[in-house]
Design a protein around this nucleic acid. Sequence first.
DNA 1: CGCCAGCCTGTAATCGATTACAGTCTGATG
DNA 2: CATCAGACTGTAATCGATTACAGGCTGGCG
Lengths: 332, 332
Amino acid sequence: MTTIHDVARHAGVSVATVSRVLNNSGTVRTDTRARVLAVIDQLDYHPSAMGQSLRLNRTRIVMVVVPEVTNPFVGEVVYSMELAARSRGYSILLHEYHGDQLTDLQLQQYVSTRRIDGLIFLTAEAREKQFQQLAQQLPTILACEYVDHWDIPSVSIDNIAATLDVMRYLMGLGHTRILLISGSAGNVSARDRLRGYRIAHEQAGLPVCEELLQEAEPTPAAAYATLTGAVERGLDFTAVFCASDVLAIGALRALQDKGLAVPRDVSVVGFDDIMFAPFLNPALTTVHQPAREIGERAIAMWLCAAEGKAQDYPVTVRHELRIRDSCAVARR
Amino acid sequence: MTTIHDVARHAGVSVATVSRVLNNSGTVRTDTRARVLAVIDQLDYHPSAMGQSLRLNRTRIVMVVVPEVTNPFVGEVVYSMELAARSRGYSILLHEYHGDQLTDLQLQQYVSTRRIDGLIFLTAEAREKQFQQLAQQLPTILACEYVDHWDIPSVSIDNIAATLDVMRYLMGLGHTRILLISGSAGNVSARDRLRGYRIAHEQAGLPVCEELLQEAEPTPAAAYATLTGAVERGLDFTAVFCASDVLAIGALRALQDKGLAVPRDVSVVGFDDIMFAPFLNPALTTVHQPAREIGERAIAMWLCAAEGKAQDYPVTVRHELRIRDSCAVARR
DNA sequence: CGCCAGCCTGTAATCGATTACAGTCTGATG
DNA sequence: CATCAGACTGTAATCGATTACAGGCTGGCG
């Protein structure tokens, strides 16, 4: 590997001068600069990232902590983050996180060994203390979720408002017994969606029926099982609101398998608007989240934080209820 | 940040000794070791990854190059890679790749600046020369795709055999005019699936009808458009074979929107067996790929390559045609 | 007692960059 | 001609680890 010393030697200058032309810092005579550049080109020299990192104490790597890359919505966000980061000279280190203690430890390791410049969380499932501790050590952004009493820059839709939109829509169609399938309770957006669910009931003067509140692992299979069970237990409901499209896909199928037509017998609403939603059968009514925008904003905000600039937060991006074919007026 | 020097000073030893206890190298007296460990613990010392990287010339980072994280199948593979890598002390740097020249350059940059220890490609879309050049510089593994004349360790299913399974199945149901919707032609597995398609025709003594060969961007929307167009042009076919489930989802919907029932009027087969496949309506018949296994194997093979150990390749993992509800006997 | 092997430890070079500081050179000015 | 500012460049310290080499100490053996 050719180093800055090789370049210096071949160009007949010192390493300091080579570094100056590399970074456009200090002053260098035009012909010296040309000579150095020629040698750099000729030797195909590329400065060692490790050397730079050590000296400058930054790695140009930001870690993205996700609950499940497997979810297309998450994939979409990560995708846009990768592109946005790359265009600014940063790379994305991917880290799955499921709220386990081992991963907590590993995250702290990354920070302690200064392997990364910062963190972006797509999930606030972490125990608060753990989370704050990381955020204190490195620039940290929360994407897709917002926790009101945490003082951390975040970008997300307004989960409560979005849920209210859904609930009002369903209630407007005459639904009063709405089954909620949410992700695990540790998840913040799940919590917000639950909160929205309760608020909507309050506003409508309806009681919340606890048996209508179901939890499921974030897979279609889990939602399928949950819903199948509910139907078999004879649970009374005319609509299902799923905390993600991934869950909705399982729910759709469970209802159909139980001989319930969607939307004639039961209405279904999802969340996220993944790329499959419009193509499902029936096309899924769901809350659209601007995944790309969230990803890009998150990177922009992270850079802002990393540069120590002040910024306004939380940033709330627009959601939109996309009405398609999975909902209808409630049967009596 | 506390460094190895701080530890050495507090423990009253030299940095060499601290390093020795950290790495269990050389010899250290038991009581000295204990003293050093105590100080490490007390100061909460963690060795700097950058310092180590510079000295040892390795970053413990492997780059995973993917065509689209947004595809749940890819997500699944990446997911298992991340876990497998992490359990061995490595991290995953994610990089989207779409065969563009800029990305080629960026990849080479990563290698030249020694930011990564190696590469795993989930796509062989790269121009061969470019690819070989990277593989020559760093340990490189090909996952999910296999290119016969490239001398690079790879792990994947046998795409041709899998396609043959599908074709035989469809032909066994009486289908002779099978529409193929494949990903972009640059893609290797797309090429293999096309090859399988041709071989199946040969073996059955049927001519390949070029108008039945369609290409589409890897989104449900693109497949939807392609298939809608085909139906509108009055193209004659009784089955559709999609090169991925993502495409199949769009295809399913296009047929239904055109008033064609699946599988009564048209049969549909997908590829990958993403987690949604069994829950679609109708449940999708598709080729199962062991995503988790591919990811884990790829990491294992990469480590093997990185350690310079010999290994057998290509590794072929088992695929399986999962017959569900989207295919039926062909109408005359 | 002298010698030597073997254990333990420290000194200092090294990886590849950046940068503070100092030194040299040039040309303008009084 | 002496002086000096300013442009250009080089020396060497530094970031935080690993490790080759050398030196000190201890104990066993002849």
